[in-house]
Amino acid sequence: MRLAQHMSVASDRVRSTVIEATEFPELSRAYQVMGVPKVVINDRVQFEGAVPEQEFLGAVLQAVETS
C-alpha cells in the first residue's frame, strides 16, 4: 500500500513497515493476518484491503486519538 510510504515522507511522526506476510509467519499470526493487504496502525486500528486516501487518513487519526 503506497499511501503508508507517502505518509511517512509527509510527516516525521509517521513510520511505515511493509511486511512480507509469508516470510514472517510469527508476526502475521501475532497480528492475525488472514487476508492481505492488512494494515495495522499503532497496534490498535486495523483494516484489510485497499482503501481510499481519506479512509486511510481516518484510520491514522483514529489510531492517534485512541493512543
Binding site: 509527509a10 511505515s16 492488512k38 489510531a63
Partner: peptide, 19 residues
C-alpha cells in the same frame, strides 16, 4: 491529508502486511 499529517500530535506506526 498533508495538513492533517503535519498536525499529528503523536507518533504513528503503520504496518502493512502483504504478499
Amino acid at each position: 491529508t498533508l495538513a492533517s499529517l503535519r498536525a499529528l500530535s503523536a507518533d504513528v506506526d503503520i504496518k502493512v502486511f502483504s504478499t
